[in-house]
Simulated assay, not measured.
Amino acid sequence: MTDVRRSNGRRPRPHGVTGVTRVGWPPSWRGQRAATAFVHQARKQAKGARMSSQLPPGPIGLTSVETLALGAVREACLIARSLAATIQTTPVVRKADDSPVTVADFAVQCWIARCLTATEIPLIGEESAEALAAAGPEMLESVHAALPAGLRPRHPNELLLWLNRASQVRSAPGGCWWLLDPIDGTKGFLRGGQYAICLALVREGTPVFGLLGCPALPQSGIPLGNIGQPAGVLLLGHRSSGAWQSSLSEAAAWRAIQCSDSGSIGAKIRICESRDLRHAWRGLLDRSLERLGVSAAPVRIDSQCKYALVARGDAEVYARLPRDPSYVEKTWDHAAGAVIAQAAGARVSDLDGLPLDFSRGVALVGRGLLVASPRWHTALLDALRNAG
């Protein structure tokens, strides 16, 4: 086959591929500059509800990498919110375990993966290019149309390259990596309830920086039922700088948040748990609360929004008690929420009292989950052990 080259000695790009960093290669300086310009262009074109990403006031000191991630997640929240308004008319496919995947799952992961190209940090994400390709041309076209106008690639097939950045990495790469759940709580997203966009930076197996974008979560309080289209919130947690919350519609209005440590053992407390009954072993939880003399009716909520409620003091406890002892949690379902809750002063552990182990890539090491303010964590952990 003839080796066709331009006069500068380089092969021409394949038709339809324009400026996409090759999958599996560390981006060059030019690739970093292009990816950074891509995000800057997204912010510049943002109008109306699409606010530019500003640093939180106070002693936060975000790095350029963290700032880039913050802007990507905020824009992803607006993409997801827009799709939520038309979810009844967009395609949905099912995974092998019968869990749903929507246009929003793919679109958000495509967007964030593309934005994070400049960081040169490996990305582990829930969705894959293979799944998007298998979903068919209607899904691919819908994902392409969901991205901001002027920023989507020329051809929908290029989205597979964007997704490949995450789907090629399934085990912990060592050093530092991103963990992404593009739409955590897809069932909540479909029913008009709670869902979250979850991104964490993991270093040596420990999440050190986390972002939760919660487009349907109100500024305060525990949401009950479907609440329409509120302002939505963005939460940020940094192990060295605490936890913060901002409204999606007011990017500059950040406030520090802290978990609640009020109340005494035996008083009525606020507890949240999963809507998925596989992770809500009510018998065990009820026996444990009874041992403490607690009167509480757990509120069932989708997604990592439960971490957010504990972090900002709207709930004292988030308990995740799987019925099946062989069930293995996924790291992307917990990393961002865990670092935010811990940065807000809460304690996060498995049901044996051990720290969550994120060092193995996709699989989370540990049995169950307990997130609580310090006053409640030890007492409830002991009660769960005795009741089990």
Rank of each mutant, 00 (worst) to 15 (best):
P12S: 11
V17I: 13
G19F: 08
V20I: 15
R22S: 11
R22G: 09
P27H: 12
S28D: 14
R30Q: 15
A34Q: 12
A37N: 11
Q45R: 15
K47V: 15
G48R: 14
M51T: 15
M51Q: 15
S52E: 13
L55V: 14
P56L: 09
T63W: 05
S64A: 12
A80T: 10
A84T: 10
T86D: 11
T89V: 14
P91Y: 11
D97E: 08
D97S: 13
V101P: 01
D105T: 10
F106C: 05
V108F: 06
R114G: 05
R114V: 09
R114W: 05
I124Y: 00
E126P: 05
S128Q: 02
A129R: 03
L132A: 07
A133H: 14
G136P: 04
M139N: 07
M139W: 09
R154A: 15
R154I: 14
P156Y: 06
L159T: 01
L160P: 03
L161T: 06
S171M: 04
G174F: 03
L179W: 01
I183K: 02
G185N: 08
C198F: 03
L201R: 12
V202A: 11
V202K: 00
R203N: 14
V208W: 10
F209P: 03
P215G: 08
A216S: 14
Q219M: 05
P223F: 04
P223W: 03
G228S: 13
P230K: 06
G237H: 07
G237M: 05
S240K: 10
G242L: 05
W254M: 12
C259S: 10
S260M: 04
S262V: 00
A267Q: 09
R270C: 01
I271Y: 00
H279N: 15
D286M: 07
R287S: 10
R291Y: 03
L292W: 02
V294H: 04
I301C: 07
Y307T: 02
A308H: 10
A311E: 03
D314F: 01
P325C: 04
S326R: 13
V328S: 11
W332V: 09
Q342S: 14
L356Q: 05
V365H: 12
G366Q: 04
L369P: 01
L370A: 06
A372I: 02
S373K: 04
